[in-house]
């Protein structure tokens, strides 16, 4: 098939947007944390916790949307832990984040194994079905790509718009961005840096967990240990690529997913000329390349990684 032809195909872009969904949630979640000045390396583990929570919730008879909420709640709890350590106690964001990732991943594997001790093939749930939004799904191209998707994908797209508006236009959003740039100024306005950062990290972590839940509740229908497979780290790279801007983050994740979908198509057609492992490397290589391209242009939040202590300069 011709590559140019592929780029005009609705099915290809629909697949790209679908594959981008967990990355959109994760990237926006990480972006919120970092805009407030906190790097959250817990993302990889929090996504795994979201995966597990959402899936088990539904497996044991819960409602799908309540499963998403449960995942978000668990994510927020890990976010709270991260915030207590890095914001309130001012501990290393790198090491705490890695610790959270290890803890969340290990706990979700442990809980999964304890809830379902004697299984060989992972059992399945009925995941979210495709949602065709009336009228809108009939728009040529866009209808297929945006409005005929899993409800979680549509939720992801809405999240981007809400977060972009929130950060740019609302006083609370401006305060959040200011916390990441100049926490002293926030404090002098009578706002609490600690409170803003805590809420930001909790909200961001909840979104990451929802991104994880998408994997088990929409993309696939079963939970595997290790299924997040580096997506969290890719999200962190995508935040840099997007220069901490939510709309650019959306664009970045979709371009990224399109490349991923493209390499899958190429892989299917080219047969076994290039070993499949090299195709699987592509997302990680793309991420590093994207980082290198954007590194000079990106504007870091000034106070990223800097713990804030009241009354200290």
């Amino acid at each position: 098939m011709d590559l140019v032809q592929l780029l005009f195909e609705a099915g290809f872009w629909a697949a790209s947007v679908r594959m981008a969904t967990p990355l959109i949630f994760g990237t926006i979640g990480e972006l919120i944390c970092e805009r407030a000045g906190v790097l959250n390396l817990g993302i990889e583990g929090i996504m795994a916790a979201g995966c597990m929570t959402g899936w088990t919730w539904v497996y044991f008879g819960g409602d799908l949307w309540m499963g998403v909420l449960a995942a978000a709640f668990v994510g927020a709890l890990f976010g709270l832990l991260h915030a207590v350590f890095t914001v309130h106690l001012g501990l290393s964001q790198h090491v705490t984040g890695l610790g959270i990732t290890m803890l969340a991943a290990a706990l979700s594997s442990f809980v999964f194994r304890m809830l379902l001790p004697n299984i060989t093939t992972p059992p399945k749930i009925t995941p979210f079905q495709l949602l065709e939004i009336p009228f809108l799904s009939e728009i040529p191209l866009l209808g297929k790509v945006v409005f005929t998707q899993s409800p979680m994908t549509i939720l992801a797209l809405l999240t981007v718009i809400v977060v972009a508006y929130f950060l740019k236009k609302t006083p609370a959003g401006l305060a959040l961005s200011m916390t990441g740039e100049n926490p002293m100024a926030v404090e002098s306005q009578g706002l609490s840096v600690f409170a803003i950062r805590t809420w930001a990290v909790m909200t961001g972590s909840a979104l990451m967990a929802v991104g994880g839940a998408f994997l088990t509740m929409s993309a696939f229908d079963a939970f595997y240990i290790g299924m997040v497979n580096g997506r969290g780290w890719i999200c962190i790279a995508l935040v840099v690529f997007a220069s901490w801007n939510p709309l650019k983050a959306l664009l970045g994740t979709i371009i990224f997913a399109a490349f991923d979908a493209l390499q899958m198509r190429v892989q299917q057609q080219s047969g076994m000329i290039i070993p499949y492992q090299f195709y699987l490397m592509m997302p990680y290589i793309f991420s590093i390349v994207a980082l290198i391209i954007m590194s000079r242009r990106s504007a870091y939040p000034k106070a990223l990684l800097v713990p804030f202590r009241k009354g200290e300069r």
């Binding site: 580096g230 780290w233 790279a237 840099v240 490397m281 990680y284 991420s287 590093i288 980082l291």
Partner: peptide, 8 residues
């Protein structure tokens, strides 16, 4: 990020 991605 880069060392983590390199692991994969």
């Amino acid at each position: 990020v880069t060392t983590l991605l390199l692991n994969f």
